[in-house]
Amino acid sequence: MPITVDQLKQKLENELEATHLDIVDTSDGCGAKFQALIVSPKFDGKPLLQRHRMVNTAIETEMKEIHAFQMKTLTPEQWEKQNS
């Protein structure tokens, strides 16, 4: 079964308490390529590599099927700043 955006959102909401998620399937539907913007308070004080590792862990099962997962990981403060 191809991985869906909803499936990833659910995982990231549960595991990372993501407050904002923007996930786009860029694979034309085969479910192997995604672009994601993930905003989570859990990223606070964590360096970039660590944040990416947290995401990779949260969607570990899905990552086995996914070929490419591009991500931006922001804290709620960073997200707010970017939008203001």
Binding site: L48, L49, H52, Q70
Partner: peptide, 12 residues
């Protein structure tokens, strides 16, 4: 030392 993948490199 492991630095990261493409996204991390781009950000850095």
């Amino acid at each position: 030392e492991f630095i990261g993948g493409c996204d991390v490199m781009l950000e850095m």
